[in-house]
Amino acid sequence: MKVGLLRAVGVATAVYGAAVAAVPDLLARPSGLADEEGRTGRATRTSLRPLAWRDAVSGLAMAMAPDGPALRTAAYVRIAADFGDAVLLGATLPGRDRKLAAAVVSVGWGALSVAGLLAGGRREVRHPRAAGPLRG
């Protein structure tokens, strides 16, 4: 597991989520959810804020969770959210280009977390007959 990569994804996600929660237009406009004049409707802003808070909190969890099972769990939550976004936004946003862009961006962020989980690092391996940990 590459803790540094997971923490970086977490911080970036938390910052973006907090920014979108404060200014939903940051997500609404590129997603095609604003009107022709670039205004985002009240209902759309209201709907995007919980999504943004989910990103902020899950990113914060990745940034702050202790290394080990807690960080792994936070990463799994983030991956599920990103891949879920890819499916849902990729199927429902207006316009083919926006659907594709949302799916690619979401899968990309999820893939970074997957890479962070799968990347090798030095782990302690205890041999059944060894008195202490072996480095693997």
Rank of each mutant, 00 (worst) to 15 (best):
A80T: 05
T46S: 09
E37T: 11
E36S: 12
A61P: 00
R39N: 06
R29M: 08
A75Q: 06
S106W: 01
A19C: 11
G10Y: 15
E36H: 07
G10M: 14
R72A: 03
R122W: 13
A18C: 12
R42E: 14
A86N: 00
V107A: 08
G38Y: 14
S106E: 04
P94H: 04
Y76F: 11
P94Y: 04
A56C: 10
L88Y: 02
Y76W: 12
E36F: 11
D67Q: 04
D67K: 03
A56H: 08
V105I: 15
A63V: 00
V57G: 01
A115T: 15
L118T: 14
W53K: 08
A61F: 03
V15R: 13
V20H: 13
L89K: 01
A75P: 01
P50C: 04
G10H: 15
R78C: 00
R54W: 10
L88S: 03
D25L: 12
V11E: 06
L27K: 09
G121N: 12
L88F: 01
R72I: 02
V105T: 13
G38S: 08
A115S: 13
V107H: 00
G95C: 03
A18E: 15
G121R: 15
P50N: 07
A19P: 15
Y76M: 06
T44G: 02
A119D: 09
A21R: 15
A52D: 06
K99S: 05
L60A: 11
V11W: 13
G110Q: 02
D82E: 10
D97F: 04
D97R: 12
S47H: 12
R122S: 10
G38C: 11
A115V: 15
V107M: 10
A86W: 00
L60H: 08
L100P: 05
A103V: 08
E36M: 08
A21N: 13
G90Y: 01
A28L: 07
A103P: 01
D82H: 08
L71H: 02
M64Q: 06
A119E: 11
T40S: 06
G59F: 06
V23A: 12
G121A: 15
L93E: 05
A81E: 11
A102Y: 00
T44R: 03
A119L: 15
A34L: 07
R39W: 08
G17L: 13
Y76E: 03
S31D: 08
G41I: 04
D55W: 15
A28I: 08
A19D: 14
A74T: 01
V105G: 05
G38F: 15
G90F: 03
G32P: 10
A12T: 14
W53P: 02
R122F: 11
E37V: 09
G59V: 06
V15G: 13
A19W: 10
R96G: 02
V77Q: 01
D82Q: 10
T40N: 03
W109R: 10
V9K: 12
D97K: 07
L118M: 14
T73I: 01
V23D: 13
P69G: 09
S58C: 06
A75F: 04
A80G: 07
A56I: 05
V77C: 02
A22E: 13
A12D: 09
Y76L: 06
L33E: 05
L112R: 07
P66R: 04
M64A: 09
